[in-house]
């Protein structure tokens, strides 16, 4: 995990990743399709960003079956929440500093 001096998290530099974290911050769990709709991205694009966030340990996956269809639900880990909050605080500080 790379963090700049300001606490701005490099992992959140991408729009998609930041969007995923924002959406998961206010929803207990979201499935792949819901995230896709909110972010308006392609399957492949979203999947690769989700992988990256999962690798960082910021989100986790919960796999289950609805009937016979596999259903993948994503949720934010405690570590992810901490990183996301730090990122928000850093943004706030940067804005205040530059006022």
């Amino acid at each position: 995990m790379k963090i700049t001096i300001n606490g701005i998290n490099k992992a959140f530099e991408s729009r998609v990743r930041l969007g995923v974290m924002s959406a998961l911050a206010v929803n207990d769990t979201l499935d792949f399709n819901a995230l896709k709709e909110f972010l308006d991205v392609t399957d492949g694009n979203l999947a690769s960003h989700l992988k990256a966030l999962e690798k960082e340990g910021f989100i986790s996956v919960e796999k289950s079956f609805v009937g016979r269809k596999p259903n993948t639900k994503y949720y934010m880990t405690q570590e992810g929440r901490k990183a996301f909050n730090n990122h928000l605080n850093a943004l706030e500080q940067l804005i205040n500093m530059q006022k």
């Binding site: 969007g19 928000l88 530059q98």
Partner: peptide, 23 residues
């Protein structure tokens, strides 16, 4: 610094996503 605008923009996007995805 020109960054301020970007940061504000980023916060706006985060907020909008939180709202859109929960309501």
């Amino acid at each position: 610094m020109s960054d301020t605008k970007d940061h504000l923009q980023e916060l706006t996007e985060i907020r909008s996503m939180m709202e859109r995805s929960s309501k």
